[in-house]
């Protein structure tokens, strides 16, 4: 059911890289789609009031976008059987320029018997990794 030959995979092999532009529009859209209307994700005044450097992207938006690199590789969103991240750094979204998130996926572990591959995702914003231990287990 998949075009991926598990026997040919190597640990550390890059499976893809995608640049996501997160704008204020992206945050409003994610707020509506997810139901997370926390004001720090769209109001500069409130972000400043609570001591943030600016309006932040929802951590769950960063998490949701990052996994698309693994989804695109396998071709099926339903193949992601286990996905976890740690939110280590905020993504500050500039009102005009937005924020550019670059996500790269690499093969972290291969379980040939169960046909499960762990993809380690690196999400970088402004030269800083914003997710820790971002791992997606993909069922081939």
């Amino acid at each position: 059911m998949t075009h991926i030959n598990i026997a040919a995979l190597e640990i550390g092999q890059e499976i893809g890289s995608t640049e996501f532009l997160l704008t204020r529009d992206s945050l409003v859209r994610y707020a509506g789609a997810s139901g997370d209307f926390n004001t720090i994700h769209y109001r500069d005044d409130i972000a400043a009031q609570v001591g943030l450097p600016g309006v932040l992207a929802h951590g769950m938006l960063t998490m949701g976008a990052a996994v698309q690199v693994a989804v695109d590789w396998v071709g099926n969103a339903g193949a992601i059987v286990d996905y976890q991240v740690r939110f280590t750094k905020p993504v500050v979204v500039h009102p005009v320029d937005g924020a550019v998130l670059v996500v790269t996926g690499k093969v972290g572990e291969i379980d040939a018997e169960n046909k499960v591959v762990r993809i380690d995702l690196e999400a970088v914003f402004a030269d800083t990794k914003v997710l820790g231990k971002a791992q997606a287990r993909v069922q081939l």
Binding site: M1, S26, G32, A33, S34, M60, G64, V71, A77
Partner: peptide, 29 residues
């Protein structure tokens, strides 16, 4: 769309059904 998925399984009923699902499936998050 909000999590920037372009995966057909999330968007296209026929693609999802061809893969054996009854309808579109949700993104992992």
């Amino acid at each position: 769309h909000a999590v920037k998925s372009t995966n057909a399984m999330n968007l296209d009923v026929f693609a999802a059904q061809a893969a054996g699902y009854t309808d579109v499936i949700a993104p992992p998050t």
